[in-house]
Amino acid sequence: MTTTSRTSATPATTVPGRRLGPVALGLRQGRLELRQFLRSRESVVFTMAFPVVLLLIFASVFGDEIGGGVRFTQYFVTGMIASGLVAVGFQNLAIQIPGERDRGILKRLRGTPMPQWVYFAGKVIMVGVIALVETALLLGTATLFFDLQLPATAARWFTFGWVSLLGITACTLLGIAFSSLAQTGRGASATATPVALILQFISGVFIVFTELPSWMQQVAALFPLKWMCQGLRSVFLPASFAAQEPAGSFELGRVALVLSIWCVLGLVLCLTTFRWTTRRDG
């Protein structure tokens, strides 16, 4: 099929004769994923812009003090950062991967010599970069418009780091695991979105956690989001606010424990349930 040939502007990314090394394979997969994410209007609007818009609305409407010298705005920012991580890690992957499976992209990749881990490395890089940007956007918005105080001590930054890292890791693994539940790409959004939304309501994002009925608090305590919110409150709220927490402290040890358990559980689910083909592929 030779027609008049024009050279494409895309530079060659391959060195003939030797396959790319693992680092290069992983990085270029990450770059591809990011490019795909940023070109998809739904992803950018739904995953990146939506939490910022929610922050602007809620923080503007509900500015009352909720006790311990803390206004709801500050409280809400911490919940929104955690929700942003859920959106980028969990919702994003739980919706995107079934779509790719549905359109045969996964099946096609499986038929190439691409090592399987490369696909996941690409997703992890995408999630990591988007989560960083998302968090920065939320922090920027909150400091600009709602007088959020950035953490003043290295210890608090450190807590911010590990809570976010454990949280996003659990969300990413659970998002990949959840992607195997959806029968079709279209059904994925309908199953993943309510899960995230319900967790947000019962985990202390939209409503102050201690105002929820205790049975609801106990249900929420089984899931990661409540612990991510709690961990982030220890970073952004005054130490005195710990007294307002259900246990009278921020329970950072328990935050680390629960999130780690979810990471392990997510990883096991990923390894045992991930499918490269749809069910109708036999």
């Binding site: 391959t14 396959r19 070109r39």
Partner: peptide
Amino acid sequence: DLTVAEVVHHFAGFYP
């Protein structure tokens, strides 16, 4: 949202 050239170049990188 990838282009034809991007996809083909990307897949080429999977092979020795």
